[in-house]
Amino acid sequence: MQTVKMVITGPFSAGKTEFIRSISEIDVVSTEREITTPAEKKQKDATTVAMDFGRITVDDDLVLYLFGTPGQRRFDFMWEILAEGMLGFVVMVDSAKPETFREAKSILETFRAYAPTPYVVAANKQDHPDAWSAEDLRIALRIEEGVKLLPCVAKDKESVKNVLLELLYSILEEMES
């Protein structure tokens, strides 16, 4: 059986776990732990400390694994391990939190350095009233024109499907070029 792997990365609280949860056929195998820092606890109760793991079975011969990385820098030793052998990656950005844009760009650059695989940027939480538009995010994050920056709502399955499909189209385009 062939397995292929995609990585979902991004800063703390960008919506990576939610993204995988929306599309995975299995309950996400999560290494979430309760947050102990009061400041972070205000944003959410639990965070990923090692990885999230989701699965999409195509047929008996082919399975897609989705790996979500931990968002905090103190767990970044996991990033390179998770990046090994990935087919492509998604960088999730919380569109309503400009304080995380710089970190998102830094994570993007780190993953680009790990492997020259195709990637897309998902402008998550587009349903939030304070969300920056995808066009504004492209300029704010200095994302090149050729890179797909997609509006996304991680809790909406159709939106997640669109992001994954666009990543797969990019992978296909690169294979054909």
């Binding site: 195509v58 390179e80 990935m86 020259p116 797969l168 992978i171 296909l172 054909e176």
Partner: peptide, 25 residues
Amino acid sequence: KPAAKPQPQVQKVVVSRLIDKIRSI
């Protein structure tokens, strides 16, 4: 750290199958 493993050799047909699957979810 140990050198990153080479990227997997995935065929176009595999990616196309993944696309079909995700479209159908």
